[in-house]
Write a protein that binds this DNA or RNA. Sequence first.
DNA 1: GGTGTTGCGTGCAAGTCGCACGCGCTTCTC
DNA 2: GAGAAGCGCGTGCGACTTGCACGCAACACC
Lengths: 157, 157
Amino acid sequence: MADTGLARDLEQALGQLLLRRNRSALYDAVLDSAPTGVDRQTYPVLSGLARLGPQSAARLADEVGIDRSGASRYADRLESAGLLERSPDPRDRRATLLALTPEGHATVVKLRDTLTRHLAYRIADWPDWQAQALIDGIRLLIDEPREGREEQEEGVG
Amino acid sequence: MADTGLARDLEQALGQLLLRRNRSALYDAVLDSAPTGVDRQTYPVLSGLARLGPQSAARLADEVGIDRSGASRYADRLESAGLLERSPDPRDRRATLLALTPEGHATVVKLRDTLTRHLAYRIADWPDWQAQALIDGIRLLIDEPREGREEQEEGVG
DNA sequence: GGTGTTGCGTGCAAGTCGCACGCGCTTCTC
DNA sequence: GAGAAGCGCGTGCGACTTGCACGCAACACC
């Protein structure tokens, strides 16, 4: 069982990781070369949609952690960039389903591949167990806080 | 040596962790109960100052990853909240040193302790090696991108 | 059929972010 | 030493983001 010294170290490390500088270092280079319509704001929406599949704006906003209004606006951008399509939900004509177009899907795949390559380069010298432990640790860390939720689909787009 | 499958998993896990929702889950509860002047924007400045010791606004902004103007403005807030003091640098009268007041220092310590307690609770069931591997992994991940930099002081406030 | 609820998209105000400017100080050059 | 060039700081400003609140359309319940 982990003691408080470890917790303190983790707090420090996590704090560093979440600093804007380091978040940017991990993502900006990739996103700066992203196609029109994709940027720091819209990428999470795009990526979340790939993860969840066609979804309502509200559900998507909740997944990403932004306001519904933001999700709607960013969907506008992605839509005019041809990466996303709105279609009425056949089951509920109030609802609008947001779905990636083939181009949108291809974009997500390409961006993810680029990110993956960057990361692969960065962890190239690590032993496998170290990388695996990092992955497991992160997953443990972000799975727990979801105590309020039940459904836990993890479909990869 | 880590292969690309691991990199892909890591990309997915990291992406999730950096989502606004999860970042918020880790920090918002603590920051919402923070004293006047401390919020999502000013906390990194406060914390960075504790880490680096008295520093110029420019250096601090670089550390946190925001613009100098932002650092200056957030310093204003922290200053009027009594958590930070500006003093002219005796070596260079252009420069202004930002330094925590005793109250500021106490605030950082308190907030860090709270964060640490939250994390300790969250990792309570983990085996030590898992927590340690997560910490090491994060540190490896954020140390590498600093290739452009030389100095690497790690003083804890 | 009527009433309350839900999902959506937009208007709006507050806040954030980064560029660019002007001012004071330092450093360099002669 | 005196002038010029460079640097650090704080602020004005415009573009953008963010979340609340509203109105509209559609559903659900009685």
